[in-house]
Design a protein around this nucleic acid. Structure first.
Length: 392
RNA sequence: GGUACCUUGGCCGAGUGGCUAGGCACCGGUCUGCAAAACCGUCUACAGCAGUUCGAAUCUGCUAGGUACCUCCA
């Protein structure tokens, strides 16, 4: 339990940093043994399972006569029977493709619960059937998961629900693809295993530096979820810069002053973004639309275009909706920037520099800029003043 | 070995028969006292071979490379 908690806490911490909203419930399989036993009984009653030496197995061959086992992953049972025929150690099962619903515990096994068939533990596909339908009902809309779970795990889940409840329960399956590192799959044996913490700190031989959680999140959103995501320092650095530009533009948008009327047609960003999201959550397209509008915002910021109050309100509303609420990208503004006295001190320095510039005292002006830059500030001159921030 | 999917410009990554996203980098320009930022422009790709079609990144076949699953554990 201690080990479980250690990793659970670590996981929650990382998810929080990535701004992944917590679910309303995270049920645990070991807390739902009764439900799982009941589910086994339902499947037994329906005749799609059999008991063998204290264990209970799902009768895949029989099920496949009435339904289609492999409907999700596009497999057919005949192939499965052939490819797994000569594996041994499965004498309790009628068929090698049959999977365990309840497993009798060997004497040294640490998971032990009492069930009508033996002291043992539930089969590993069962928890999802039992808990999913307990909390979401016998039919629910979306079931997610990694593509690696499609077969056999989700396939078996469908079979269990169909056999036990008479319905396959899930309306849409959404499988996200795997992660690769430099084009190679991530694996401990390959030495390219990188944890989220290591991405954040940059403490890994394959990383040139650390990346903020928001950079990681943005990077992932720049690929459609069904595609593999290839992590590399080079690609992450590109995302980091892009995200910075996007967030900065969003901040500019909020400070833009409206003109009499718009000098440029702003079109229907909201509709375009909604359309992209409706197309199987095509977040890269949403992001590309936002970048297109970023150009308009920057033009307005430069005074080359003007936007009416109505257009500004619309853009503000859409940018907020998609950047913050839907893509979940938080501004990386640091706490120190918010301290009033500190802001005023920096403003004061830069106002002195502005004076020096007016007097063409470039030595003083450059000194202030260069010193501040070396402390980690980013100074930008604008038409009538300056902007600054702490470099990320 | 079997099944499925993938291979896009320097890098990342959309796009499913004609209109050829977006980001990052590079180069040129505008702006600037010089920078930075911003803006404008340039670079025009679809693994290879063959085929279908008036027309293919997009359809078909083959070849090469990659990924996942096919066994335990979740």
């Amino acid at each position: 339990m201690e080990i479980v908690d250690y990793y659970t806490l670590r996981y929650h911490k990382a998810m929080e940093m990535l701004n992944v909203l917590p679910p309303s419930i995270e049920p645990k399989a070991s807390g739902h043994i009764m439900e799982q036993i009941e589910f086994v009984e339902k499947i037994l009653d329906a005749g799609y399972a059999y008991e063998s030496d204290g264990s209970v197995y799902f009768d895949v061959e029989k099920y496949n006569k009435d339904y289609h086992y492999g409907i999700l992953s596009g497999r057919n049972i005949d192939e499965l029977l052939e490819t797994t025929r000569n594996l041994d150690g499965q004498s309790e099962k009628r068929r090698s493709v049959d999977f365990a619903l309840w497993k009798k515990a060997s004497p040294e096994h640490i998971m032990r619960w009492k069930a009508p068939w033996s002291v043992g533990f539930p089969g590993w596909h069962l928890e999802c059937s039992a808990m999913g339908t307990k909390y979401l009902g016998e039919e629910f809309d979306i079931h997610g998961g990694g593509m690696d779970l499609m077969f056999p795990h989700h396939e078996c889940e469908i079979a269990q629900n169909q056999a036990g409840l008479g319905k396959s329960s899930v309306r849409y399956w959404m499988h996200n693809n795997m992660i690769t590192i430099g084009g190679q799959k991530m694996g401990k044996s390959l030495g390219n295993f990188i944890t989220l913490e290591q991405f954040f700190t940059g403490n890994h031989p394959l990383l040139t530096k650390g990346f903020s959680p928001m950079t990681i999140r943005f990077f992932i959103l720049q690929a459609q979820y069904r595609s593999t995501v290839d992590f590399s320092s080079e690609a992450l650095e590109a995302s980091e810069k892009g995200l910075e530009r996007l967030i900065e533009g969003y901040a500019r948008l909020q400070n833009l002053t409206a003109g009499e009327k718009s000098s440029i047609e702003i079109g229907n960003l909201r509709e375009k973004c909604e359309e992209a999201m409706c197309d199987d959550l095509n977040t890269p397209i949403v992001i590309s639309h936002l970048f297109e509008y970023l150009r308009i915002i920057n033009l307005a910021h430069d005074g080359k275009e003007t936007l009416s109050q109505a257009d500004l309100d619309e853009l503000n509303s859409v940018f907020k909706l998609f950047i913050e609420d839907i893509l979940g990208l938080q501004s990386t503004e640091t706490a120190t920037e918010g301290i009033e006295a500190y802001r005023k001190a920096v403003d004061l320095l830069l106002n002195i520099r502005l004076e020096a510039k007016k007097n063409k005292d470039w030595a003083t002006s450059d000194k202030i800029r260069n010193e501040l830059t070396s402390y980690g500030f980013e100074i930008k001159d604008t038409k009538d003043g300056f902007e600054w921030k702490v470099a990320p």
